[in-house]
Simulated scan of single mutants.
Amino acid sequence: MPRQQSLNNSDSLRAAQMYYLQDQTMDAIAHELHTSRSTVSRLLSAARNSGLVQIQIRSPRERTPELEREIRKRFGVDAHVVPVPDTLNEGEVLERVALQAARTITPLVDSNAIIGVAWGSTLSAVSRHLRQKSTHDCTIVQLNGAGNTRTSGITYASEILRRFGQAYSAKVEQFPVPAFFDRPETRVAMWQERSVQRVLRLQERMTMTVFGVGSTDADVPSHVYTGGYLDETDLDELAASSVVGDVATVFFRADGSDNGIALNARSSGPPLALLRNVRRRICVVSGVSKINGLRGALAAGLATELILDEATARRLVEDSATELPTNR
């Protein structure tokens, strides 16, 4: 009887390399690995589900590769464009993008990584599609607090973090502070606490961040704008400062600048300068209605990799005929 092997990443990788790169049959792989053909089939399925193998179908008439090249050329980021039909609503598009994002992120996660994760509608969707990958000494750290006057936000944010931690066998570090403090001086005092400084030091050592782009006018509203985090005075203040979006509750304008935006002094999110220092910064965006926030985030140099739907990618390329100055 052939020896049955456990379904781990090493076995899956070896089987996938033989099948996809060496054109070996499943029978030949089973013989070499001393296992059964059915086990090889499961290994190949595990390789696809974990993101070790990503299958792409390219039509000669499809614009996706062209859009990815144009975005890289114009904005200096690696783009992953998700083809979706124009008939889908934004909720359905979000699910398609979230699934692709989860499959793209997993192969990039390494052991000993410190991964900053923002909370929000987009990351909540991404977290539901994450696949298992074994790592060691990996840490998931919350990028910004989630509390407000209505709720602690712990349940909502912790569920997203829990899914990331569970997927990658990682330690989870929550950030149990408000999303926005009532006064800037309160944040300054809170940032002196040793328990808070421990989380801040982790954020300073992040090797990867994963985040969406918040927008006030998206068809699928960003959680920060619908969850009681901002009142009418805050929203008026953002409009007066020409804010187009946020990343982890830190706001910016269309040109990527964030100086003089008063609400940022009360935000628990990381400074944009800190985010720009992280080696790998994965931005996930779904929906054309977030285009202004996305352009602002790109102008600010916040992303090294971008995962977005095809319609938004087309709009991004078409609207970039007149380049905006960047604040990198």
Rank of each mutant, 00 (worst) to 15 (best):
S195F: 07
R279C: 01
R198P: 00
T249G: 00
R205P: 05
R198A: 14
S267C: 02
N259Q: 15
A218D: 12
V250M: 13
F211R: 08
P178S: 09
R205I: 01
P184H: 12
L200T: 02
T186R: 15
C283T: 08
V213K: 04
R266W: 10
V196E: 03
Y168N: 07
N259Y: 08
V172A: 03
R163Y: 03
V188C: 06
A240R: 14
Q166E: 14
T216A: 15
R198T: 08
I282C: 07
S268R: 05
V250W: 14
R162A: 14
R201K: 13
M206Q: 06
G256Y: 10
F252I: 07
E232A: 15
R281K: 15
I160V: 13
R163T: 01
A170T: 01
H223Q: 09
A265Y: 01
F251S: 09
V285Y: 03
L274G: 05
R183G: 00
R194E: 15
L275V: 13
F251M: 06
R201V: 00
Q166M: 12
R279T: 14
E185I: 15
F181P: 05
S169W: 07
R194I: 09
S268D: 08
N277H: 08
A189Q: 14
A179H: 01
D217N: 11
Q203R: 15
T209Q: 03
A179K: 01
A179W: 06
N259T: 11
E204M: 04
D219F: 07
C283K: 11
F181A: 08
T186P: 00
A218N: 00
Q166A: 13
T216R: 14
L275A: 09
A239G: 03
D219S: 10
Y168K: 06
D236T: 08
Q197S: 04
G227I: 05
E173I: 09
H223P: 00
P178T: 03
F251C: 12
L200P: 01
S222V: 04
F180I: 06
A179T: 13
L202R: 10
P176A: 10
V220N: 03
T226G: 10
F181N: 04
V210Q: 06
A240T: 10
L202T: 01
M190I: 04
E232P: 00
G227S: 11
S215R: 02
I160A: 01
C283W: 07
T233S: 15
L274S: 12
D236Y: 07
S215V: 04
C283Q: 09
T186N: 14
G260T: 10
R194L: 11
D234R: 04
A248T: 11
D246N: 13
L272W: 06
Q174V: 14
P184C: 11
P178V: 05
L272F: 11
R280D: 13
P270M: 07
F251E: 03
G165W: 05
D219Y: 02
M190H: 08
R201G: 00
P184R: 06
R183A: 14
N259K: 12
P176S: 11
V224Q: 00
R163V: 07
T216K: 13
G260A: 11
G165H: 06
F175H: 02
C283V: 02
